[in-house]
Amino acid sequence: MSTTFDLDGQPVPFQPGDTVIAAATRAGHTIPHLCWDPRLGPSGACRLCTVEVNGRPAAACTTRALAGLRVACQTEPLQQRRRQLLQMMFVEGNHFCPSCEKSGGCALQSAAYAAGMTGPQWEEFYPQRAVDASHPALWLDTNRCILCKLCVRASTELDGKGVFAIGGHGIHTHLIVHSPSGRLADSAIAATDEAAQICPVGAILPKRRGFAVPIGERPQDTP
């Protein structure tokens, strides 16, 4: 029996229990994603890893690999969908990259570059949530948060502190901090926690370390 599936015409080997994205990544393929991390359980929140599985759209991070699946990732319709998803994420937050310390090292930004996103087509939401700068070593700007829940999962699954959670409904869904005051300073988080470092965008940032890497040498800068 075959233990591979087909990704854009290439056989990808997998192990029992693998998701499509886990097997593809291990085999050296790239499926665009924002909320997936191989160390953590799946989230299925960002939808960027949507591929076509036997002709139907499915999230590669929540779809189990099966022998003989036909998976399409690099098609123009999918690329167009990714651009639209990314545009939605940008207008939902205040993504003013020109003054964001994560610029050049941001997964959202580089996914948008890779998808060829130039401008938005929807109205800006312009959320106005207060910045939490209460913690001595960290600060939180949830106007840039994409609700990927990487911090939530890292904090519950990796160190058991459970510092973060998601609250609210619909467009008002937002990241909350589990502490009596709701402030980061009164939570158990430490700057060395994975939950403090895992944020793929500029929502959770270390204090007093911004703009330290020259333009051109940042992780996502292209030559």
């Binding site: 003013f96 990259c97 020109p98 003054s99 401008g119 938005p120 800006e124 312009y126």
Partner: peptide, 18 residues
């Protein structure tokens, strides 16, 4: 053509929106 961050999403001046 919308040229630059300000024309595209309001840019840094839109930080006054709150």
């Amino acid at each position: 053509v919308a040229v630059g961050a300000c024309a595209i999403n309001g840019g840094l001046p839109a930080q006054r929106n709150g």
